Amino acid sequence: MLTPQALRAHLLAARLAGIVATSREESLRSYRLFAAGDPRVLIGIDPGRGWGQRELIQLMAEKCGVSADHRRTSGHDVIDPGRTLRALDAFAERLGAAARRRAHVLLGTGHPHRLLGFYAALADALSAAGCTVLTPAQGRCVDILTRFGLRTYNLDYVRGVALVRPPGTERPGREPGAHTHSPLPVRTALAAAAEAGGPLPELVIGDHGWVCGAGQLGFEAIGLGDTDDPALFVGEAQGSVSVVVPLDDGVRSAYYRPLTRYVLNRACLSQ
Score class of each variant (00 low, 15 high):
Arg40Gly: 05
Phe118Glu: 00
His104Thr: 07
Glu25Tyr: 07
Thr152Ser: 14
Ala125Thr: 08
Val211Leu: 00
Thr132Gly: 03
Leu232Cys: 12
Leu203Ile: 04
Asp207Pro: 05
Pro258Asp: 08
Tyr153Thr: 02
Gln216Cys: 04
Gly65Val: 07
His10Ile: 05
Leu126Glu: 00
Ile205Cys: 09
Ile79Ser: 03
Asn265Gly: 12
Arg261Val: 12
Thr180Phe: 05
Leu59Asp: 10
Arg24Asn: 09
Gly250His: 13
Ser270Leu: 15
Gly218Asp: 01
His113Val: 10
Asp89Met: 06
Ser27Tyr: 03
Glu175Met: 12
Gln271Lys: 07
His113Ala: 14
Gly139Arg: 09
Gln5Cys: 02
Asp124Phe: 09
Asp46Cys: 10
Ala231Ile: 07
Asn265Trp: 12
Ala98Thr: 04
Val41Tyr: 01
Leu122Ile: 15
Asp38Val: 08
Ala123Ile: 00
Asp89Asn: 11
Arg187Leu: 15
Val244Lys: 01
Pro81Met: 03
Val105Pro: 02
Tyr153Cys: 05
Leu184Gly: 02
Cys64His: 05
Leu115Ala: 12
Leu203Gln: 07
Leu145Ser: 05
Arg40Phe: 12
Arg171Ser: 07
Gly117Asp: 01
Ala121Met: 12
Asp46Met: 09
Val204Tyr: 00
Gln58Gly: 13
Leu217Ile: 07
Gly130Ser: 07
Gly117Ala: 10
Arg32Ile: 03
Gly173Glu: 06
Leu126Asp: 01
Pro183Ser: 05
Leu203Val: 12
Pro166Ile: 04
Gly110Asp: 00
Leu155Asn: 05
Tyr262Met: 11
Thr84Leu: 08
Ala61Val: 10
Arg187Phe: 09
Pro167Thr: 08
Leu163Met: 09
Arg32Lys: 10
Leu7Asp: 04
Leu85Val: 03
Ala189Met: 15
Leu259Trp: 06
Tyr153Val: 03
Val251Gln: 14
Val133Lys: 13
Ala35Gly: 09
Gly48Cys: 14
Leu115Ile: 08
Leu42Met: 07
Gly18Trp: 09
Asp89Pro: 06
Ala192Cys: 10
Gly149Ala: 11
Leu16Asn: 00
